[in-house]
């Protein structure tokens, strides 16, 4: 008990224990994130975390970094304001599937289109956990949720394909079972310039696994182990997730595109004599 976990110095220990349920995958994602941060050796003052609302939205409150817990769905536009004001910052948006692609869906696609320099970490548990397990735009067809008690009949988003098709420069998916790959992907998503998207399939045993007879946290991890297939470079069209179906993991996209600020400075330099390229306000 006396030995300090090396991740503790990155956590607000005065806020622990956290609110997440036993078996939840969020703790694993935070653990991987901190290890990835350590590996990047970036000065921590230059990192800012922005979260929306929901279980994943609480990540910002546990990390001992300058961190912002914003409104539901609006983490990305907040992060845009922050990052454009101080482009030296690495701004990480760390939020859930409902927050980022349902209520925040428009912000997500527009920020990708503009190639905003943001790292987007989306923890996808296929449901709205904080409010008790309602259907989400990621819930697979046939899965039971409190608002689809007879099974979901809506086609869900294939998030890597969505991000890819609207211009993300980095797209990867891992599960919380793949801690080594996940940590590496987090490091990449932090270091990549431009709109970089990492989807993490993460268990919500309390409200998704149990209700859909996948089991508790451990059984959900076993499910990931047995049903994941690593296919780096896969066409994102082919990585949709069906109910209890295989989970295609890997790095799907890693390309270069000029960012919003690079494009802006380029255009203004062409049109305005003696234009001084914008490089932040602080």
């Amino acid at each position: 008990m006396s030995e300090r976990n090396i991740i503790e110095e990155y956590l607000r220990m005065d806020r622990i224990p956290h609110i997440w349920c036993p078996g939840c995958g969020l703790g694993t994602t935070v653990n991987c994130f901190i290890r990835a941060l350590q590996q990047t050796k970036l000065p921590l003052d230059n990192i800012s975390i922005v979260s929306g609302i929901g279980c994943t939205g609480r990540v910002a409150g546990y990390l001992k970094l300058n961190s912002f817990h914003t409104t539901h769905g609006r983490a990305i536009p907040f992060a845009i304001g922050l990052q454009l004001t101080n482009p030296k910052l690495k701004v990480v948006v760390y939020s859930g599937d409902g927050d980022l692609v349902s209520i925040g869906g428009n912000h997500f696609i527009q920020a990708a289109r503009r190639n905003m320099d943001l790292a987007i970490i989306c923890v996808n548990n296929f449901t709205y956990g904080m409010t008790g397990g309602q259907v989400a735009p990621t819930t697979p067809v046939d899965a039971v949720a409190t608002t689809t008690p007879y099974g979901n009949f809506e086609e869900p988003f294939n998030l890597p394909h969505l991000a890819d098709s609207v211009g993300a420069v980095y797209v990867a998916r891992w599960t919380t079972y793949h801690v080594m790959q996940l940590t590496r992907a987090m490091k990449e998503v932090i270091q990549k310039k431009g709109f970089s998207f990492l989807e993490i399939i993460s268990p919500c045993p309390t409200l998704y696994g149990r209700r859909n007879k996948i089991g508790d946290g451990l059984e959900m991890m076993k499910f990931y182990k047995e049903n994941s297939e690593i296919r780096n470079g896969a066409n994102t069209k082919d990585v949709a997730i069906g109910f209890k179906g295989p989970i295609i993991c890997g790095k799907f996209v890693d390309k270069e595109r000029p960012t919003f600020l690079e494009n802006m400075n380029q255009k203004l330099s062409e049109r305005i004599p003696n234009y001084k390229p914008y490089n932040g306000l602080v």
């Binding site: 536009p77 304001g81 922050l82 912000h107 527009q110 602080v282």
Partner: peptide
Amino acid sequence: CGGIFIQMEDELASSIAILGAVWGGA
């Protein structure tokens, strides 16, 4: 004069982008 304007996708985005900017120092 060294400023930055962004036309956001809607007023929800505009109204929180400015808050992010303030917390960045603008």
